[in-house]
Simulated scan of single mutants.
Amino acid sequence: MRVPFIKMHGLGNDFIVLDARETALPAIPSNFANRLADRREGIGCDQLIVLEPSDTCDFRMRIFNSDGSEVEACGNASRAVALLHGQPAKVETGGGAITLEPATGGASVDMGSPKFEWDAIPLAYAMDTANMPVGWDMLDAPMAVNVGNPHVIFFTDDADAVDLAAIGPAIETDPLFPERINVNVASIAGDNHLTLHVWERGAGLTRACGTGACATAVAAIRKGIAKSPVTVTLPGGDLNIAWEQGGTIRMTGPATEAFRGTFEWDDYS
Rank of each mutant, 00 (worst) to 15 (best):
T252D: 11
D46E: 14
D267G: 04
S66A: 15
N131W: 05
M143S: 14
R222H: 09
G95E: 01
A27D: 15
D58L: 05
T231L: 12
A186G: 05
A166H: 13
P88M: 10
I28M: 12
A213L: 04
E179Q: 14
P142M: 04
G42Q: 11
G210K: 08
E264P: 06
P122Q: 02
C214G: 10
P53W: 00
R39F: 12
A170P: 01
R79V: 00
V230C: 13
G204L: 05
G112Y: 06
D119E: 01
A242Y: 03
E200C: 10
G95W: 02
L25M: 06
V183D: 05
T104M: 07
A165Q: 08
F263W: 09
G204N: 13
A120V: 03
L205Q: 09
L139Y: 02
G236W: 01
W118D: 11
T248M: 03
G68S: 11
I153F: 02
A89I: 12
C45P: 11
P150R: 05
F64V: 03
G44D: 13
N146R: 00
A77R: 04
Q87P: 00
V185A: 14
A208Y: 00
Q47C: 04
G210D: 11
D55V: 01
A165V: 11
L139I: 09
D163V: 11
L36W: 01
G10D: 07
W199A: 02
V198N: 04
T129R: 07
D158R: 13
A130K: 10
A144M: 02
N131P: 00
M251W: 00
H9S: 14
G96T: 08
V91K: 11
L25F: 00
G190S: 10
C214M: 07
G190T: 11
A33C: 06
H85K: 11
T262E: 15
E41L: 15
T231N: 12
T256W: 05
L11P: 04
L100G: 13
E22V: 03
S69T: 14
G246F: 12
M1E: 12
A130D: 15
G246Y: 10
E92K: 12
I49D: 13
C45D: 12
L25A: 09
V17T: 13
G96F: 10
S54W: 02
G261H: 06
S228C: 07
G96Y: 09
A161C: 08
P133K: 03
M61W: 07
T231C: 09
M132G: 07
E257A: 07
A161F: 02
V198G: 03
